[in-house]
Design a protein around this nucleic acid. Sequence first.
DNA 1: ATGAAAGCGCTAACAT
DNA 2: ATGTTAGCGCTTTCAT
Lengths: 339, 339
Amino acid sequence: MGAVTMSDVARAAGVSPMTVSNVVNGRAGVSDAVRRRVMETIEETGYRINVAARNLRAGRSGVIGLAVPELDNPYFGELARRIVAVAGEHDLRVAVEETGAAPEGERGAIRSSKRLDYDGLILSTVGLDMAELTTLPQLPLMLLGERENRSAVGHIALPNADGAQAAAAHLIDRGARRLAFVGGPDDREPTIRSMRWDGVQAAVRAAGIDEEDLRLVDCEMLTMDAGRAVGRRLGEQGAAGGPDGVDGIFALTDTLAVGLIRGLVDAGLRVPEDVLVAGFDGIGVGAHLTPSLTTVEPDHDWTARRAVERLLERIAMSGPPGEDEIAPFRLVVRESTGG
Amino acid sequence: MGAVTMSDVARAAGVSPMTVSNVVNGRAGVSDAVRRRVMETIEETGYRINVAARNLRAGRSGVIGLAVPELDNPYFGELARRIVAVAGEHDLRVAVEETGAAPEGERGAIRSSKRLDYDGLILSTVGLDMAELTTLPQLPLMLLGERENRSAVGHIALPNADGAQAAAAHLIDRGARRLAFVGGPDDREPTIRSMRWDGVQAAVRAAGIDEEDLRLVDCEMLTMDAGRAVGRRLGEQGAAGGPDGVDGIFALTDTLAVGLIRGLVDAGLRVPEDVLVAGFDGIGVGAHLTPSLTTVEPDHDWTARRAVERLLERIAMSGPPGEDEIAPFRLVVRESTGG
DNA sequence: ATGAAAGCGCTAACAT
DNA sequence: ATGTTAGCGCTTTCAT
């Protein structure tokens, strides 16, 4: 192609390629006159830097990976949007991957990160355990979501325990006494699930409620479909609603909560009159459901920014991963808990 | 870094770098014995190809851009997921961008595609008009969404007119007589909006309904919030529901429809008892709303595959953009139209 | 303040 | 079937 190179610009401006490089990269040590002349020549020739060449020289690919469980989940869409924005500020491209919320998918993301030469990977993990992650080779990695990092992996945590506790305390505050925790599949610890479960237990204990009255309900997958099946089952079995049934549910994620509410409705129950429901994530659609969804909303902007910035630090200095950080959150009270 | 290069592998295997290259790229003309030996050496040394170097050599960046209006909109999440999958089959990385559904954002995506050296761009456009797109310089471009391409730009269209017509016909079939079309802001033609509007008009005409009874309602943005405001206004003004009010609404997108339904509910109306509502896009959450959402669902898999494949063709051969193609669709009937 | 040389890792083109 | 040469466009290093 007739791509204009630095040498072309240099020749046209009557300087060396090195000077052009210095101008393009805003480095010091170029006189104003020369700088201006080079800038003009760049303008005239339509020169654009060749990213591949720069990357080759720098030993980088200029791409970071972002692997999320599901791209069509609004929560991860929001996350992706913010991460792309922050990465763009640093001239980094973000390649998105989907893991399907399965350990195999997460391994796949790591593999393809290496195959496609990503400079680093932000992994929103649900499945992979720490032991496995720490044995993974050379790839700057930031984990999003879990906590209790004892490993060599950088980590931005969600406010799992505190957020879940706040949500459960709110359910109790609104009159619920027989709570249920609807989680995903029960797998390795510590996971998002186990930490949120701890939070809910803490709230129940703090309220002086008999822990016998706290139910743990499994749910095969973290999808709306699966949540709906659970909600319907709970309602039809009389396990929810009614004088002795569950009267307050914390759903592991908003996605689950959306399906769960619909399942309860399918079974003839009303939310919040018969059962209160709260979720976790703060997905946008939650505000516009009928009933709208009470949720724990982590600060997505903060999360995205810290994830990218810390990944960049790791890429640059390949030092130790640094401290865990936990995202701030707020409890958004809406109709599903009578708010 | 101690990255293993092709030369390293070549030396270790006692062959030339070129032979290693041939093996790595599965090219013919390597004896089985040598191929095996090279493979083993690659395995032993942990060699991985340097993508930046390959790209520099090939004059590509190995990254395509995908620019969508909103990443936290499930529709685009689904689209992104599929595009990433197909691109991955071709060893391409997908960098996602957000345009904010504004012409300026779309221009920005094109600019940053060039700044970051994307090999091509898939642009799900709502705002930019064709005239502007055709004047854009050298960047293989596939447009997603609009139609009536008279330009030099490749184009995968959604079934805008036919889909909208099917939805409107269905509303009429379910008893609606006073339809409303709730669209985004009214801008340049032809847009998604104008084409879907044409489809709805066609359905009304075909049913022999007085076109006076078809209302066109503007909506400032294509967001749930904006849709909700419109729904509330329609309900509160008595413009929807009641004996003379609108009794069937086609919303330009599912996102809009979600907010719209909620706004009608806010105003004390029931869907579908008082008003029928249908949307367009087939977002996943639509199945789990109360009421669940009737929608025109384009074949996302097909769309993603064709978009990537045709972009690749354009990148490879930089020929003419080729024919427009229109995605197949199906009408998914759910509760919001009494289904 | 500016420039020349060298090479990042790969592969097309041309030998052998 | 395999090897050699040369160079993609940039930037680090070391002059001047």
